[in-house]
């Protein structure tokens, strides 16, 4: 499980994540989102779900990727276990095994930041909850 930091917002919430490269950043951001939605610590990567990359530039691609992960959890009932580039590994969501935390409505473009520095990649993402 990646580490992430929760960011303050009056109505909703956000998180800051890092990754050594873009792929790891996307995987860690998805793990952070999943951890906001449910306790994924016992989820197993039994099924594979592919997500096509869409959007112009890294920011749009990140928001699209995260909204697709959210749709898998809320629309398809998937409990994610791990993330590869363009792929979500998980199993069927079960309230007892993956206790729910929050309903996230969407991943937004609000104050969205993706950057690259000496330590790798970073992103700040806000969620509508």
């Amino acid at each position: 499980m990646s580490r992430f930091e929760i960011l303050e917002h009056t109505a909703d919430m956000g998180f800051r994540v890092r990754g050594a490269n873009e792929e790891e950043l996307f995987a860690n951001a998805a793990a952070a989102l999943a951890a906001v939605v449910m306790d994924t610590s016992r989820a197993q990567g039994l099924e594979r779900h592919e997500i096509a990359s869409e959007g112009e530039g890294v920011e749009e691609r990140l928001v699209h990727w995260l909204n697709e992960v959210l749709w898998l959890m809320d629309g398809r009932g998937v409990a994610p276990a791990r993330f590869d580039p363009g792929v979500v590994w998980g199993e069927t969501r079960d309230g007892a095994k993956h206790p729910p935390r929050l309903v996230v409505k969407a991943v937004t473009f609000h104050q969205l930041r993706v950057w690259q520095d000496a330590e790798g990649w970073g992103a700040e993402v806000f969620l509508d909850v």
Partner: peptide, 17 residues
């Protein structure tokens, strides 16, 4: 619920372009 959330997400994405 999720239906409305997804409608907004879908159209925000389309409208950007």
């Amino acid at each position: 619920r999720g239906l409305g959330h997804q409608v907004c997400t879908d159209f925000l994405q389309q409208m950007g372009a």
